[in-house]
Each structure stands twice: as C-alpha cells, then as structure tokens.
Design a protein around this nucleic acid. Structure first.
Lengths: 250, 250
DNA sequence: CAGGCAAACAATGTATACAGTAAGTATCCA
DNA sequence: TGGATACTTACTGTATACATTGTTTGCCTG
C-alpha cells in the first residue's frame, strides 16, 4: 500500500514474494499462523494469482509450510534447526571447496577470491572495528562464500548451497552483525578470515581434504558464535531472523 | 485425456505435477524445449492455473528451468551433473549418519533398520538374483535410506536429502535396475549391503566418523556402478531418467 | 539478394469470478 | 450446563477472461 507501482520492471509475483518474505522475517506474520491470501492481497497490493505463486515459492524456499487442509503457515524453527542448518551449509561448502581443489582452479579464477581476501584484511585489521566496517564485512563475506561456491563448477551443488543459504539464519553472514556486539568480535573475525585464507591456499595446492575440513570448521565457528550471541542476550535485535524461532526455546 | 477424472481425492495441481513429471522423465518433453502451457492443459486435462502451479513446483524440484523471457523449459543435465548429484546425496546422507551416531539412537528406533537389513540379506543371498528380487531390492533399499535419513532427527537435513533424492538419477535406487544387467550384479549388491550393515553398526556404537565415511563411500559405489553401466551400453532402456541427459554426452 | 522494420499472432503474466469445503459459532436438546 | 448438530461464513482451489510482452513472419528498402 505504501509504494504503489514501484518498479514495473519486476513481476508482480516477485514483488509479492519479496513483500511476504519481509513480513515473515520482520515478524509481522507469526510462526504457526495461517497466511490469509486475501490479507496478503491487501498488504502486497497485487492480485491473488501472483500471491499464490509467491506462497508456493516461499514454501519451497523453506519459510512456509503447507497446511494439510489447504493454505500455508509460517514455519517455526527450533534453535537446533538453525544450528543444523549452519552445519549443513558448512558441509556443502566443504564439498564445494574439495571439488574446487581436486578438479583444479586456474589462477585466473582464483584472482577475485584473493582480491576479496585482501579487502577483508583491510577491514579486520582496524581495532576496534567500526559498525560500518562490520557492514562492509558482511557484504564481502557473502561475496567470498559465493565465489568459493562457484569454484566447484558443479551446478547441482551450487543450487543446493543457494537453497540452504536462502534461509536467513543459515546464510554465511546471517549472524555476523550480532557478533559485532560481542567483546570477542575482532578475534572472531580474525579467525574467520584465517579460515578464508587457508581454504584458498588449500585449493591452490589442490589439497582437497584440507579445503573440505577447513570449510566445515568455518561453519562450526559460526555455530559457536551464534551460541555465544544467544547467551549474551544483548543486541538480539540485530537478528531479525529470530522472529522465526519458537519463542519457547529462545 | 486417458484417465479423465481419476482420483478426485488428489488436487488438480498434484495431478498436473505427476502427469508433467511423467512426460519429462519418459522423454515426451525434450530437454531444452519450452513447455507450452496450453499444450500441457490439453495433455493433463486440467486448467492453466494448476498447470502453472505444477510448473513452478517442478522448477523448484529441479526438473525445469525458467526461461528469462517467461515460461519454463525442461532442464538438461550433463553426465557430470548426475555424478555430482549422487556424490552430493552421499555427503548429505553421511552427515545424517554422523548426526544419528553422535546424538545417539535408541534400540527401538534402530529396529526397523535392522529388519530392513535382514530382508535385503534374504534377497542378495540367492544366486543368480532374479529380476523380481532386483525390484524388491530397489524398494527395500529406498526404505533403508529413508529410515537412515530419519535417524538424524534433523528436519532441515531431511528436507535437503529429500530434495536431492527427488532428482530421479540421484535417488538411492536410481540406477540399481541398470546394474541388474551387469555380470558383477550380485557382487555389487553384496558390497552395498555390507555398507548398510557397517553404517548401522557404526551408529549403534556411536562412531560418527565411521558412519559418515561409509555413507560417502556407499555413494561412490553408486557412482562407480553408474559409470560401469554407461560403458556397457546395454540395457540403458532401464534408465528412463537418462532422457534428461544431453544426448551429445551420453 | 540480404537485412531491417513493422505488424500480426501466440503465449505468458495477471486479475477476477465461481464453486466446494472446512471451520467456527450459535442454538437446541438432553 | 454441557455437548452435539446444523447453519453460516469465509477461505482456498480452480477456471477463464484479459492485457501485455515476446517472437515470428512477411514485406519493403537499400
């Protein structure tokens, strides 16, 4: 209702999908409750057909769950679900790193990865790290992980990693901002960046096992940090994705 | 057009999805060519709306690809894509086995798995193995893998494994029938069954690393056998899923 | 003869109307 | 007063009509 016909370039379906996803992640739509199509029509400003298409896509994306009697509801996740999803992503990224190492990567293809490494270096070196630097890190980190995934040159694997990362709390940078409030913030980022450096080195030297292991450990670091951030309950407002977590457990 | 109003219990969307999937896997719809919605309406006997829903679902399932200018086309897979998908499934099943082992499984939950083991034993013991026994093996093998996946008790992981296994050529029993024509058939099945036995033993003894490793190797066995079956080009008719493979490469 | 432009056709994306079903509420009976 | 049944309401699933966009074909011009 706010922006009426913003961007006629994107389809109504995509617009509905984005609007509904925002509503889900912001907590406007609560987990477990049925999503009324008519209500969605009102809030998104598009007709029922694209709303329904968007609902189907969001279900496949993992944010919604089909109700047996019809319609969809917002999915509820447990804390365990989130930790498992991160480890799942780490396992898949590990496989991608191994594929890249075993199959070989040209220096040409490794270049953007190293460039990304250098830019992150410039960020994590400053002490203390500013909030702006954290934001920049989030973007660069996402870019690094995307580039690494591409190096596997395996469309099926890339597809799966994209699917897992679509869940906001499982994405590589899902919880980085929450860490910014922790006292160990810089230390964590330094370790993470060391992982980045090692995986590039391993791929360059065609050490598949090492590349795989370090990416798994990299995800375990994210798991550890998330646990840490959840224990210090401060700055949980930096984690909008937590709107999806069953309130009884968080 | 053949079966007019078969099973009013299932929705039109599901009916269209099943019909279209059949057409894709049987090769009636060729990879790369656009799927006409109107044509699909004629062949499936349902209206355009459920056809479109089915198309979206099949795209998410991985069988279709969106055309930038609109509509969908049948996805084409390379031989490498198939092999990667199998290894991907093995990696995920390995993670599931490790989760099961590390988190512990009650004897009560392990029972159906062992029962499944016993039934498969009865099949692979006979020599030579009849075609009927192969069919039975396919069903039991699928059941075993499904039970094993469930043991992880990790909904996100189970979901991902289901997604990968939805691709017919990546499913645990995708190529078993093709192996039935190989002279090494019984030997292969004996080895596979040994893997099954080992993974159950590893889970029972909470040996996470061993459980994970054996499931990965189990998938590598499938990769090996698929390569074998592709080399002996006989009985490729047992692999309907190969309709999706780029003809230039198979 | 070849290339480009325009027009017509076809197919997708979107909206809306209709039917069937599930859920909720109110009333009546025990 | 509680439970069950019937009725009403509202929602989803489906079909179809419409508009916009992309593609193809034919004609014209260079």
């Amino acid at each position: 209702m706010a922006e009426r016909d913003a961007d006629r370039s994107v389809s109504q379906t995509v617009r509905a999908q984005l609007a509904l996803r925002d509503q889900i992640l912001s907590g406007a739509l609560r987990p477990g409750e049925r999503i009324s199509e008519l209500q969605a029509v009102e809030t998104t400003g598009v007709s029922r057909t694209p709303v329904r298409m968007a609902l189907v896509r969001l279900e496949e994306e993992g944010l919604l769950e089909a109700i047996p009697s019809g319609g969809f509801m917002v999915k509820a996740f447990s804390e365990r679900d989130i930790l498992d999803s991160i480890e799942l992503r780490g396992t898949l990224e590990g496989l991608a790193a191994r594929f890249a190492a075993e199959r070989g990567v040209s220096a040409r293809d490794l270049e953007p990865l190293k460039e990304c490494l250098g830019e992150i270096d410039g960020l994590v070196r400053q002490s203390p790290i500013s909030v702006e630097a954290f934001s920049a890190y989030v973007a660069l980190n996402a870019r690094f992980h995307a580039l690494l995934t591409e190096l596997s040159r395996s469309p099926p694997l890339i597809r799966q990693i994209d699917r897992v990362s679509a869940l906001p709390f499982a994405s590589p940078s899902g919880f980085v901002m929450a860490q910014s409030a922790l006292p160990e913030a810089q230390q964590i980022l330094l370790i993470a960046q060391d992982h980045h450096r090692i995986v590039v080195d391993a791929i360059e030297n065609r050490e598949g096992g090492r590349a795989e292991a370090i990416m798994r450990e990299h995800a375990r670091l994210a798991v550890r940090n998330l646990r840490l951030a959840l224990r210090n309950r401060t700055h949980l407002d930096l984690l909008p994705a937590l709107a999806l977590v069953r309130t009884s457990e968080v």
